[in-house]
Design a protein around this nucleic acid. Structure first.
Lengths: 343, 343
DNA sequence: GGACGTAATGTAAGCGCATACATGCTGGCC
DNA sequence: GGCCAGCATGTATGCGCTTACATTACGTCC
């Protein structure tokens, strides 16, 4: 491990010289140990450790045409849902010797395409991307290079892409159905920005579809779109309650953060939840269990999705077989924030 | 962008041929545009786009001896604090054309050293690492290669490493001091696993130091170490209250999750917070403002830390000047979960 | 005992680029 | 008008590794 700060890092040829072998043998000792005599191998390992040699990945990639790199493209790391998926995916791929490049698009499609371009230049051999609503050139680029990919988190039956996720539309239809069955007929929705976001769009259409099956619809003044923060949830709840006309008895929120914000504000306004107002979330954040009342929400196993996406890519990397797409289901978690209409 | 799936990706020489120039000019068009005649440059760009050529990073790295890669080593992405730091750091470095490799150690020092080894093999030119409690070989490896690094998140005055973070010990001393000034004399602590974790260790010693200055100490039965979950917070609070002997009037928690767990349980047990029990957290999670009562906690600007770490590395990368270490301060946020002792 | 298979290692080419150096060309200046 | 500066581009080498192929040594089998 000795090596002066000024000199360049040792190369395979240095190890070879010190061990009295050729660079080919050094390479084999690390990449195909069984092809090298145990004593020679041990000598090489000892010398490499002594010199602090690490095989230069760029050289290896160039010569072997393998980078052992994969990419994952998500909107942001600043969201438990994506962080959990990436964490699981990375753990899995890392165990197979694959380094993962994480790209964040910040919900910007052009940025997403740009990130993929950078990743491809780096030589990723597989890619997982959140959301299937992307610039067409994004999929074109990876297809042109024959890089296997998978769409994570969302899963729509008619999707043109392999995907590992759940059906956002079906999930919100189920949730809405649950509320309809409770007797609710007046709904409000508080949701995240929908621009370029297929998950949010699918959720909204799931709600509308379920309502339509009962001949119901959302009033424009009862749909609130804004940042996924507690504050926006609170503010929207207030506007919703204060607005003229028939007051909603059920509020469907795009995620738990918005729902908890709404819940907090409803309680602050002295409203009876679920007596006179039902509120639902999505994600089942750990805190959802502990709000008062506990939040009715839906749970998705993000760790499983990350693992499944990794497994899918690993399979595609090792063989040509087409693996069936994997559908997860969002599970409805009924807690205390929802109940029958008071009427 | 045409290119069959079977053929290998185009190379610079293909672009050169199609544009009627040499590979040197293609390289210059992308890396030193001002050295190429505008019309030639445009032709090259057009051809490159047409062919879908992306410069192979491995080849570029080998030839230029620059990888434009940096690494960041964190315990896990599954924690808002680290995710926020990484997100900010990555955004900053990405804007400078640097790709960041994210390594997660899962709080395991050997795994951390292994990750750094992999990163060095990939050719990272800079490294940010959370926590200064690491295997010595970790720092030896990066020093041997002359790779600039910075310790993120923690910052202790006597540290041997450049660091961008705050003084965990001082922060918890300040917090404890605040409670002491409120009249508290009986304390309990609920904290995360301290093994190999300098942040947690420093926090504990900050608490003990402040108490010692008043001749006080923590009773072993009032110190709870376990996973940073709501559940462990609840469970510990219950044990704490049910335990024999003098009951603590203030509970210092290692982070907000534990504190909120404790708060929930205290309220469930019918205790008056802060009337008969004060509870503090750390991190100032968004939800901390909305618990009942709102949680007294401490805030650290993780986004700023991530940015500052990136800036430090960027500076070290561009010049040799030693940049002074940057000290952040944890800000005390007094809310409703703390108050004077009831006595 | 000689031919041959096999295992261990060496030799050398080349992966896709960047860049030092060479070349050619234009224009300005005395 | 000749010379030279300076610009645009080309030529060719090598970055550090892997791997096809060559070589060597050895054991085996008839």
């Amino acid at each position: 491990m000795r090596e002066s700060k000024t000199s360049r890092p040792p190369r395979a040829i240095d190890v070879a010289a010190a061990a009295g072998v050729s660079t080919a043998t050094v390479s084999r000792a690390f990449n195909a140990p069984e092809k090298v005599l145990p004593e020679v191998r041990d000598k090489i390992f000892a010398v490499a450790a002594e010199l602090g040699w690490l095989p230069n990945a760029a050289g290896a990639a160039l010569a072997s045409r393998r980078t052992w790199l994969a990419g994952v493209l998500i909107p942001t790391l600043d969201h438990d849902v994506f962080a959990a998926q990436v964490n699981a995916l990375q753990a899995r791929l890392s165990a197979s010797g694959i380094t993962v490049l994480i790209g964040c698009s910040n919900y910007d499609l052009d940025e997403a395409a740009e990130q993929v371009k950078v990743m491809l230049a780096r030589g990723i051999e597989a890619l997982a991307v959140v959301g299937e609503l992307q610039r067409p050139e994004l999929f074109e680029m990876i297809s042109a290079r024959g890089v296997p990919y998978v769409v994570m988190y969302s899963h729509s039956p008619q999707s043109a892409h392999p995907c590992v996720g759940f059906d956002n539309q079906a999930a919100f239809s189920k949730l809405t159905r649950y509320l309809l069955d409770l007797g609710h007929r007046n709904f409000a929705v508080i949701h995240q920005p929908s621009l370029d976001n297929d998950r949010v769009l699918a959720r909204l259409s799931g709600i509308r579809a379920a309502l339509a099956s009962e001949g119901l619809a959302l009033r424009p003044q009862h749909v609130f779109e804004g940042p996924a923060t507690f504050e926006f949830g609170r503010e929207s709840l207030r506007k919703c309650i204060d607005s003229a006309g028939p007051r909603p008895t059920a509020i469907i929120c795009g995620n738990d953060t918005l729902a908890i914000g709404a819940l907090i504000e409803a309680r602050a306004m002295g409203m009876d939840v679920p007596g006179s107002l039902s509120i639902t979330g999505f994600d089942d954040l750990p805190i959802a269990e502990f709000t008062s009342p506990p939040l009715t929400t839906m749970r998705v196993d993000n760790v499983a999705i990350g693992k499944a996406a990794a497994d899918y890519l690993l399979t595609r990397l090792s063989q040509q077989a087409i693996v069936p797409r994997e559908a997860f289901e969002a599970e409805l978690i009924v807690r205390g924030s929802t109940g029958p209409t008071g009427e």
